[in-house]
């Protein structure tokens, strides 16, 4: 579309205002994270910290064992990611590249679980893990990833697999390839970008998960970063310098992962949104 000059100017001004609104919370967080507490309380507020208190970060991250929280988060994220990638690609393959009786019905039933409010399954699932003796362990946060890795991921991968031409599989069948070989040697390499998309979503989803760890983890040494940050808030509720430094530190890996994989994120959202 060719918009007139005034319209474009108007568009730029609006976008600039919106960008400022969306960026301001980040700016305010970073500014507070680098100030001394006394400077934070200065009225009217100043924008630039002076001096820059970099040691806020070291102080914030050592007040509580954030290195431990970080390690716990990494363990849960890494194992969850491994389970999700393996089991969702295998399931998506079975739902798209093999023609078998009952396939579509089973897929639709499984897909319906995406609409289900989590609250309905929450309590019995919790009781189940507790009865098995896995309360206050990482298992409830990791094991489900190995059973399909979430319908959202299977759905997204299946959408992608269906766009790969059939001829590839059929040529492989003629050459005597098994289904597993087709999955591993043909479909998986061809769907690299879709696998990256679901990995990124799973990474963020697990990294940011608050409810799961809150329900299943009790002892502080097993806490994830999200829980640790919340505990920090409870303990140092008015230490805004340290709170903002800890928040910034927890956000940083997400932002890095997002900026590195941005292209895939937007692709992935588009893929699900359009077909939904």
């Amino acid at each position: 579309m060719n918009e007139s000059l005034t319209k474009r100017l108007f568009g730029y001004i609006l976008l600039a205002v919106i960008s400022i609104l969306f960026l301001m919370p980040f700016v305010w967080m970073l500014r507070s994270s680098l100030m001394s507490l006394s400077q934070i309380f200065v009225m009217p507020p100043v924008w630039l910290p002076s001096p820059f208190k970099w040691d806020n970060f070291t102080r914030a991250l050592t007040e509580l064992p954030f290195d431990r929280f970080f390690l716990n988060t990494i363990i849960i994220v890494a194992l969850g990611l491994a389970g999700t990638v393996v089991s969702s690609t295998i399931a998506a393959f079975g739902f798209s590249r093999i023609e078998w009786k009952g396939r579509n019905i089973i897929f639709m039933i499984l897909l319906s679980s995406m609409m289900l409010p989590g609250a309905v399954t929450l309590i019995p699932t919790f009781i189940g893990w507790k009865e098995l003796g896995f309360y206050d362990t990482f298992y409830p946060l990791i094991v489900p990833a190995f059973f399909g890795g979430g319908m959202f991921n299977i759905f997204l991968l299946r959408q992608f697999y269906m766009t790969i031409p059939r001829d590839f599989d059929e040529a492989a069948v003629v050459d005597g390839a098994t289904y597993f070989q087709i999955y591993y040697r043909i479909i998986l390499p061809l769907s690299r970008s879709a696998v990256i998309v679901i990995s990124l979503f799973t990474f963020l989803g697990t990294w940011n998960d608050f409810f799961g760890p809150l329900i299943y983890l009790k002892s502080a040494e097993k806490y994830t970063l999200a829980l640790g940050l919340q505990m920090f808030q409870g303990t140092y509720s008015s230490q805004w310098d340290l709170l903002m430094a800890a928040s910034a530190a927890v956000i940083l890996p997400c932002v890095l992962v997002f900026l590195l994989g941005q292209k895939y994120f937007l692709e992935g959202i588009t893929l699900t949104g359009l077909k939904g």
């Binding site: 295998i90 399931a91 079975g94 739902f95 396939r103 499984l110 399909g148």
Partner: peptide, 14 residues
């Protein structure tokens, strides 16, 4: 058989 096996983990998860 294979379709069933490939989707079994997801079905079990469900």
């Amino acid at each position: 058989l294979y379709g069933f096996l490939f989707t079994l983990p997801a079905t079990l998860g469900f």
